[in-house]
Amino acid sequence: MAHIDRRIYYAAVFLLTALLLIYPLGLPLAISPEVRHTYEMVENLKPGDLVIINFCLSASGYQQLQGACNSMIDHVFQKEGVLVIFTMTADQAPIMLEGIIANNGELMAGYSDYPYYEINGKQYGVDYVNMGYYPGLFKWIASLSADFRTALGNNDWYGVDVSEFFDSHDINHARDVDLVISFDSDDGAGDFMNYFFLEYGTPVVQSQIGVMVAGAKVQYNAGNYAGIVPSIRGAAEYQFLANYPGYALTQMDAFSVVQFFLILLMVLGNVGYYGYTRHQKEA
């Protein structure tokens, strides 16, 4: 096996993925307790609750979290009377959020462009605002936790004055926030945990890319994260729970089969290695 051209493996992975995306098998999917718990947290949001939805997500991780972003945002926007502030701590994130908003909403009457989209009946500037990207990561989140108006300013990402939104709902401080959801390929939720949860007790939920899952589970089991939606698998589970069929669920078959292909290669590679070392000893 050591002499097989690696391009053959690459071609096999490409074919398996492409075929299963075109012809999904519809394999069963078990729901993990952490994703169910996260779903229930969103489901239990009450009218008047304020949610910060943060994107600390670069394009490299977006394919893994696209399903979670769409289904979780749609779910939050289904909750009547819940207010939403979008923030971003990654420079590539604004364009992804625009795509998600366009995917889940429609332009408000009389408007032809962002930010004026209506999502599940929620109006821009009345029920939600998009404050855009802020540099500085944890420095900015620390500043935000203490004083929203200074850290966010009066204008949204598009330069529209949204101070009325903050004034009318008396939003000033991390204590005013009922839930933070962060979609992360960098550790935005970790910073929200430090400055929102540990200082003010505001619950933080993280949806993270695969390589961050082990660290996130530690925080979840320790009670520092109120919920986690791990990578594409978690996204598929959330889509199933939220009855939001989409990217993550359709990718699960390809995900399963490619993982099995990887297992098969590990087994065959070791059988081949065992035969090779035995042959060497005999020689």
Binding site: Y10, L262, L265
Partner: peptide, 18 residues
């Protein structure tokens, strides 16, 4: 950016065998 990250899966399978 997405492509560069996605290429990892090909290296992973090759690493699985080797």
């Amino acid at each position: 950016d997405s492509t560069i990250y996605a290429i990892l899966v090909f290296y992973l399978t090759s690493a699985g065998a080797r």
